[in-house]
Design a protein around this nucleic acid. Structure first.
Lengths: 143, 143
DNA sequence: CAAAAATAGTACGAACGCGTACAATATAGT
DNA sequence: ACTATATTGTACGCGTTCGTACTATTTTTG
């Protein structure tokens, strides 16, 4: 079975999205990962690294570095979790909150036209087939 | 329009593939990028960096480093192109050729069961929808 | 309760990935 | 021919990504 074309298209499309999205975000002085963390942290009362990693799909080792740079930019703070001294709670600072309120809707508005071109139906189909492939990969990986 | 779920699935699926594929390739002492270059170079009489980059979707700056490491491993060589002194021709060494002949089919065989689970039809659909999304992204990026 | 196993986060090294700048060479335009 | 422009690859810095190892805490178990 010749799955290489589909595979190739997966990579190409992912990269196209990454380029398209990243181009906009870099203008705000952020990286995709940093933006992702800020978007995740918005409208929350603080999250552990573990939870952030789960949402953003970053492994914890990666997250440490991203948080370090966000902390240096004074967009987030790390405070000790009183209930579990192993973990920390990550919060947006007021400056981080401001970026969330400005940049997040702006970025959605930037992305929207591209996805609108596809239409809801095709987008749904795409999502389903992607999920099926992912499951196939994860299932095969286990066995 | 709520495109975030589809977007999220794109990223998750890409990462799932990357993890699944990379896991196998790392056992051969290669990285995905290195494997990609070797697979591209197999059955050719040598290619320029430009062409390799086009096939593997790496930007030239990235490629320089990957080629450096492959050269250090003595899997490729860089020879001057007599027709155009700006460019170099990248070849597989005999050792590189051996890896291509062994690892490339082995890796396809490793990937195949996962894709087989989806079936040809769903795979085709997936490819089409991905291509549509990519075009939408590229079109929107231009205008 | 004490030892063993799990969990949270950090530290670190290797490799990518991208943007920018740069040197060498080719190609166009005049 | 000569200059302006484009192309090829490298150099470099910043940030990400991953795997592995490690410390500090829970949590589980015997």
């Amino acid at each position: 079975m010749d799955f290489l074309p589909a595979l190739r298209e997966l990579v190409r499309t992912y990269q196209a999205f990454d380029a398209f999205s990243g181009q906009h975000i870099r203008k705000l002085g952020l990286t995709m990962s940093q933006f992702d963390v800020i978007a995740t942290l918005g409208n929350t009362a603080g999250m552990s690294c573990r939870d952030i990693g789960e949402k953003t799909l970053m492994v914890k080792g990666t997250l440490t570095g991203v948080l370090d740079r966000l902390e240096k930019k004074q967009l987030i703070t790390r405070v000790e979790n009183p209930h579990d001294k192993r973990s920390v709670l990550v919060h947006l600072t007021p400056a981080g909150q401001r970026i969330f309120e400005d940049a997040f809707p702006a970025h959605l508005a930037y992305l929207e036209p591209a996805f609108r071109r596809l239409g809801k139906e095709r987008l749904d189909t795409l999502q389903q087939e992607l999920a099926a492939l992912r499951q196939a990969l994860e299932q095969t990986g286990k066995s």
